[in-house]
Amino acid sequence: MLYAMCFALFMLGLYCAVVKKNMVKIVLGIVIMEYAVNLFLILLGFRTDAVAPIVDRQFLETGADGMTVTGAFLRQAVDPLPQALVLTSIVISLGTLALMISVCIRIYGKYGTFDITEIRRLKG
């Protein structure tokens, strides 16, 4: 269910980016798409009633090959990797967003409009 809603959000963003005429709305559509992907990545690591993936002393046991974490911890903890991925992806989308918004401002300065149907010097 959550995954389906996440996918619906992605498609909503894609629709917005493809159909809208206003440049700022296109940028917003792209941002929504990126948020949907981030949400999806977080959902991959999600578990109900889980603990944070930080190894405490109580989760360590001494086995045949030295100190290892207990199986109970592995069954309980959320997956930390998607969280690291989402952080990276947020930083990347921030960079893209900043560049897109600044290009929008420059285009507004040159053309005096945000409407992409009026920004049409390139053709062929």
Binding site: V27, T96, V103, I107, K110
Partner: peptide, 12 residues
């Protein structure tokens, strides 16, 4: 003008 327009299209 043209460069910014192309840049926006490419970026989207």
């Amino acid at each position: 003008h043209e460069e910014l327009e192309a840049c926006f299209k490419y970026m989207v």
